[in-house]
Computed example of a mutant assay.
Amino acid sequence: MTETTNGLDQTREALLDAAMMHVPFDGWSEASFRAAIADSGVDPALARAACPRGAVDLAVAFHKRGDDEMARRLAQTDMTEMRFRDKVALAVRYRLEAVDDKEVVRRGATLFALPQYAADGSKLVWGTADRIWTVLGDSSDDVNWYTKRASLSAVYGATVLYWLGDESPGNSATSEFLDRRIGGVMRFEKLKSQVRKNPLLKPFTIGPDWLGRQIKPPHARRRDMPGSWAAQAAD
């Protein structure tokens, strides 16, 4: 089974490499997929086995390839002296820099805006946020696991859209936009912390805090569920 899976992964990568020159012109379409098959020399039946949905599966593979490149660069970067907000910003910048041609991403944004593929697009953005938090060592095991990824997904999604239209030298305007968005998230997190520590507000936060601790991330419970309730309070 593993050998078969690896073979399909290699086939998908070969098709993806071949599709790169066609996507900017034909999008993530059947035309691009057929051209990739012809250029790569992959057997059409094997190509369909590796990518049952054709170019859509290649678009998904392209996004995940970018996540892998981002994670690789982060692993090679010494972030010991960096503030956490700067680590997050660096991760997003690395993710954007993993793309050589904005038009390929623009075509992907168009594809995943379609109703039938919107869920795929949302899942990919969530996956990127999850990858960033995981690489940066997030150890949350309650509702914060979800809120962190939801916040970063929003920041990442907005930054990508801004970046697609950015024509400033070195995408400097995108970097400034990203810093502002992360700054907003950090201010919100600081406000939440202040509310929890305020003795006058303590009676109003006990219930929500307890409830939040009962919500567990997927890796802490069953993997086939999006989350779960703890059987009992941790304390």
Rank of each mutant, 00 (worst) to 15 (best):
L111N: 05
L111T: 04
L111I: 03
F112N: 01
F112V: 02
A113E: 10
A113G: 13
L114A: 10
Q116I: 07
Q116P: 00
Y117V: 01
A119F: 12
A119V: 11
D120G: 09
D120T: 11
G121Q: 02
S122P: 00
S122C: 11
K123I: 01
K123F: 07
V125F: 08
W126V: 08
W126A: 14
G127Q: 10
T128R: 09
A129K: 04
D130E: 15
D130R: 10
R131V: 08
R131N: 12
I132V: 15
I132R: 05
I132H: 09
W133V: 05
T134D: 06
V135M: 14
L136G: 03
G137Y: 05
D138S: 15
D138A: 13
D138R: 07
S139V: 08
S140I: 01
S140Q: 07
D141C: 12
D141M: 14
D141Q: 15
D142R: 09
V143H: 04
V143P: 00
N144E: 12
W145K: 01
W145A: 00
Y146M: 09
T147Y: 08
R149E: 09
A150S: 11
S151G: 12
S151E: 11
L152R: 12
L152M: 14
L152Y: 14
L152I: 14
S153I: 08
S153V: 07
A154I: 12
A154E: 08
A154C: 06
Y156G: 08
G157K: 00
A158H: 08
A158W: 04
A158D: 13
T159V: 07
T159P: 03
L161W: 07
Y162E: 13
W163V: 02
L164H: 03
L164K: 02
S168L: 05
P169G: 01
G170H: 09
N171G: 09
N171R: 11
A173C: 08
S175M: 01
S175D: 08
S175A: 13
L178P: 03
D179F: 01
D179S: 13
R181G: 02
G183P: 05
G183L: 05
G184N: 10
G184A: 06
V185I: 13
V185T: 07
R187W: 09
R187V: 06
F188E: 08
F188H: 11
E189F: 03
L191T: 12
L191N: 05
K192H: 01
K192L: 15
K192A: 10
S193A: 15
V195K: 04
V195N: 07
V195L: 10
V195I: 15
R196L: 15
R196G: 02
K197A: 15
K197M: 12
N198D: 14
N198P: 06
P199C: 06
P199H: 09
L200D: 11
L201Q: 06
L201G: 03
L201E: 05
K202D: 09
F204Q: 05
F204Y: 13
F204E: 02
I206K: 15
P208C: 08
P208I: 08
D209V: 12
W210V: 14
L211P: 01
L211H: 04
G212K: 08
G212H: 01
